[in-house]
Design a protein around this nucleic acid. Structure first.
Lengths: 349, 349
DNA sequence: CTGTTAGCGCATTCAA
DNA sequence: TTGAATGCGCTAACAG
């Protein structure tokens, strides 16, 4: 009777023996078929078929070659959270394109927020790392750096020894904020979380320097300057902090802003998803866009075109591709990506 | 000057030498810290820090242990397509839970539809495979089986030597179809693709036996029986085939059905996303739900509750977890998952 | 608690 | 075109 452990894995050596050739001839059959005679090759393949050889063992091959031909992508605290964000999905697709083109695999390294995240990074059999934007104090960053492989962060933070790919968030926020707040007297912001605990709140004159997510920090800084350019003091600008990047929470936050004693007449969001929620809240409150309340989004996703949102256009797909190149060690480590403002009917000008 | 290839990777042997201990003591420091004296451990860690040792090499460790501690997930033709489907995301989350709980990683194997998919399977350093539902003729299935590792398919097809996890789609379709078509005279179906080329069309009396996606085939079979139970011939049931599982295309398909000479008075969809599109089309056509047109979805996603959709409830998350268990070789290979009908206001009874 | 031996499966190097 | 030797970096098994 067969042992419950199942048959031992078939090795190249066994195939070679059955085929009556050396191990190297068998190896060449898989790696450089042109350097093997037709006769030898067919003997090897016949023997492999008879034994049920599964092909060269990936781990052994990685060890021998010194390369796994796989990139690791560190996707932030909640796997599903990352996948539910359509921009994150575009980013992954950009990475997948490049990996496929180079014959590389792609490993998603799900981060749970627990201490064993670091272990998962350490045991990842990958040649390079791509880290989706995170907070300045995320311990994952040090773990990735300690692996001493090519690594790149998307968005931020900037880490010594790691690449950085992303747009100039502060400049883009200043630009879109300027459009959003044109002619407004009471601008407001719907924001991503300010810290890793992801609490929701509405705060006035948020202390931007305390914000641990660099992307969020830079955007707030840009919005602050846009507000100040319009003659409005930062302490008078309410910031509705949402725990998650989705329309539903942004809608609730916007509804709260609109129901306040001094409702905003312009709302700049941090994603088109959020802006979509804001639009719903404004409509539900019976106000006109943009006459009574202007709205801006971010990313130029499909929903932005559908709702006529003024927004910041950037290609997360291209940025994913740039990150993959960097993680492959094929390109300068860092890159500032292009962005532009798309003006539509949700703003006054 | 440092070579452009960069410093050679630091090995455990170098760490051990600098620390003045044997390689095994260094190894134990990482793998069984309790079996090493505090003194030895701190010497090893100090040496590692001085040399910038990144920790045991994952590939070498996998080779030696005979296990990668990673599961591979084969996600179907388009990476982004898979991620955009919220049910697929739940499924992934279920897998991620189990992987995390067992200290396993999880590798997404993106399938492009090209010939090199098979190569990507063959070179995947994983202990087991989970295949997201695909067509009977998908060459990926043979490639996975050839790897001779624990493998499981979600949904279908059933493959000799591989596990199968999913619900009884035919029975569930029959049950929800019976509710959808109650009191209807002209039922219609909004369907997933019937073949891998993913063409859109409206067909009458679709030849179910030709459908290559087993999940779709089983659901159509169940709907057919429900229609026949209601006294309606299958050839009179229009099937609107959508290329993708999303609301937008389903809305267009439903609009076409509703604009026809004999508009349907009941529409059974294959996902809640599709059903949401159908609901929009019906509203746009100015018809009442369920009085003039009944609608059903599938999955009991958040949108189903929001729209009051009658639907089939199943837990993709639990099924993902079951697949992970099977791929870890820890459980009986196959499992029929539970489902139930959730009745809401979108149907006549 | 620590060390020695051995070899996981493969592909690079060099020789034939 | 083929083959022999070697070792990638690590850890199970055992001995001390």
């Amino acid at each position: 009777m067969e042992s419950s452990a199942g048959p031992r894995r078939v090795t190249l050596a066994q195939v070679a023996e059955l085929a009556g050739v050396s191990v190297m001839t068998a190896s060449y059959t898989y790696n450089r078929p042109s350097r093997v005679s037709d006769q030898a090759r067919s003997k090897v393949l016949a023997a492999a078929a008879r034994l049920g050889y599964a092909g060269p063992d990936p781990s052994a091959r990685s060890l021998r070659r010194g390369s796994t031909r796989t990139l690791g992508v560190v996707m932030g605290e909640h796997l599903s959270y990352a996948f539910e964000d359509p921009e994150a999905v575009s980013f992954l697709a950009g990475i997948a394109d490049i990996c496929a083109g180079h014959g590389y695999g792609m490993t998603i390294l799900p981060i749970t927020g627990a201490a064993d995240d670091v272990q998962r990074i350490k045991s990842a059999a990958v040649d390079g790392f791509i880290v989706w934007t995170t907070s300045d104090d995320d311990p994952v960053l040090a773990a990735v750096r300690a692996m001493r492989r090519p690594a790149v962060v998307h968005g931020g933070p900037a880490v010594q020894g790691m690449g950085l790919v992303g747009i100039d968030d502060r400049a883009a926020a200043h630009a879109v904020g300027t459009v959003a707040f044109a002619g407004a007297e009471r601008p407001a912001i719907v924001s991503f979380p300010l810290s890793r605990d992801r609490t929701s709140a509405i705060v006035g004159g948020a202390d931007i320097t305390e914000v641990l997510f660099p992307v969020t920090r830079e955007r707030l800084e840009g919005y602050r300057r846009a507000a100040e350019d319009a003659g409005i003091a930062w302490r008078d600008v309410p910031v509705a902090v949402c725990a998650r990047n989705d329309a539903a929470e942004a809608e609730r936050a916007a509804a709260a802003l609109l129901a306040s004693a001094e409702p905003p007449d312009a709302i700049a969001a941090m994603s088109d998803q959020q802006a979509a929620g804001v639009v719903h809240a404004i409509r539900a409150a019976g106000r006109a866009i943009p006459e009574e309340v202007a709205v801006t989004g971010w990313d130029d996703a499909a929903v932005a075109a559908r709702l006529g949102l003024t927004t910041v256009a950037q290609s997360l797909r291209d940025q994913g591709a740039a990150c993959a190149h960097a993680a492959l060690g094929r390109e300068p480590d860092s890159r500032t990506a292009p962005w532009s403002i798309v003006r539509r009917a949700s703003t006054r000008r």
